[in-house]
């Protein structure tokens, strides 16, 4: 494991981009420490891919500045390119070449000799479970295999920062979990990951920090837990064995009751202090609680609370 680098992997201020009159990014600031996973969360059309294209030197921002490991995107694009790897939403593999040839091509372009390129290819094919399909054309691969080959190609040059633009969109749940495992491995090796996703769960699973992108602006940023705490809707569920226990609990604690399930929901921010206070009141009233569970809001609630629209509505609005 490499020690964390002091430098920011990505430092951007005031990035703006419009296509014609359509403003896609409207003043984005980013500060992403090396060795972390940063997730840009947003529905289709929010500007995630544009963000990745700018940061990976594919297109230029209209204004604003960005540095990747201290290298300016506009002034030293080649130094930036040497440090990054990009795996996009639409796989960037050569369908006419075999899996092994695709990897060899990357190796050669990274200046590896034939022998080293071949060893690196073999190693990556094994690691990404593609060894059996190594000599088949990539066009015959399944969606999950293409995505794995794509990521393997990105890794040939040993990038320090990887952009994963919706890496699991269109994958089945099993392939998705496989992809998550791979991302976790990369992070444990010290690679910085910039992940865009429209899956709330994915950001929650992988990211150290999440930023929510909505109509070209970052409307919230923080750890998954910070984001969840930003919004109301958290509660503690108390489950009781009998109706009279539920009655006395309601008298003592308030909250809303569900007679059928014998459950009392008490509002709470999910923090330790409020939980402790609640437990004290339960003890004070000598209540017999069968089961207690803390419900923290999921990221769908984050959307709803931050924008007044749910993630799915946002998707519809963006179309």
């Amino acid at each position: 494991m490499t020690p964390p680098e002091p430098q920011a992997a990505i430092a951007a201020t005031g990035l703006r981009k419009s296509f014609g009159t359509h403003v896609v990014l409207d003043g984005i600031d980013l500060d992403i420490p090396a060795g972390t996973v940063f997730s840009l969360l947003g529905p289709n059309g929010a500007g995630k891919t544009t963000m990745v294209k700018i940061l990976s030197t594919l297109i230029r921002a209209d204004s604003g500045q960005a540095r990747i490991f201290g290298r300016d995107l506009d002034r030293e694009p080649d130094r930036v390119r040497a440090a990054i790897g990009v795996t996009g939403q639409y796989s960037a593999v050569d369908g006419l070449l075999t899996g092994a040839e695709n990897l060899m091509l990357m190796g050669r372009l990274h200046g590896l000799g034939r022998g080293r390129a071949r060893r690196r290819s073999t190693e990556l094919l094994e690691r990404f479970d593609l060894a059996d399909a190594a000599s088949k054309p990539a066009s015959t691969y399944s969606g999950g295999m293409r995505r794995r080959l794509d990521l393997a190609m990105t890794l040939v040059g040993g990038p320090r920062l990887i952009f994963l633009d919706e890496p699991t969109t269109g994958l089945d749940p099993r392939s998705r979990r496989g992809m998550w495992e791979i991302v976790r491995e990369l992070v444990s090796e010290g690679v910085t990951v910039f992940l865009t996703t429209q899956y709330l769960e994915e950001a929650d699973q992988l990211a150290d920090r999440i930023a929510v992108l909505d109509r070209g602006r970052l409307i919230a940023e923080g750890t998954p837990n910070e984001l969840k705490r930003l919004i109301p809707g958290g509660h503690i569920r108390l489950h009781f064995a009998q109706a009279d226990a539920l009655d006395s609990a309601e008298r003592a604690l308030g909250g809303s009751r569900d007679d059928e399930a014998l459950v009392l929901q008490v509002p709470s921010d999910g923090g330790l202090a409020s939980l402790r206070a609640l437990l004290d009141r339960i003890d004070g009233a000598s209540l017999k609680v069968e089961e207690l569970s803390v419900h923290t809001p999921d990221l769908d609630d984050v959307y709803l609370s931050l924008t007044g629209r749910s993630g799915t509505e946002q998707k519809a609005a963006a179309r």
Binding site: S56, L58, S91, A92
Partner: peptide, 8 residues
């Protein structure tokens, strides 16, 4: 997508 990859 391969050309986008080459460009980066």
């Amino acid at each position: 997508g391969i050309v986008a990859r080459f460009r980066t």
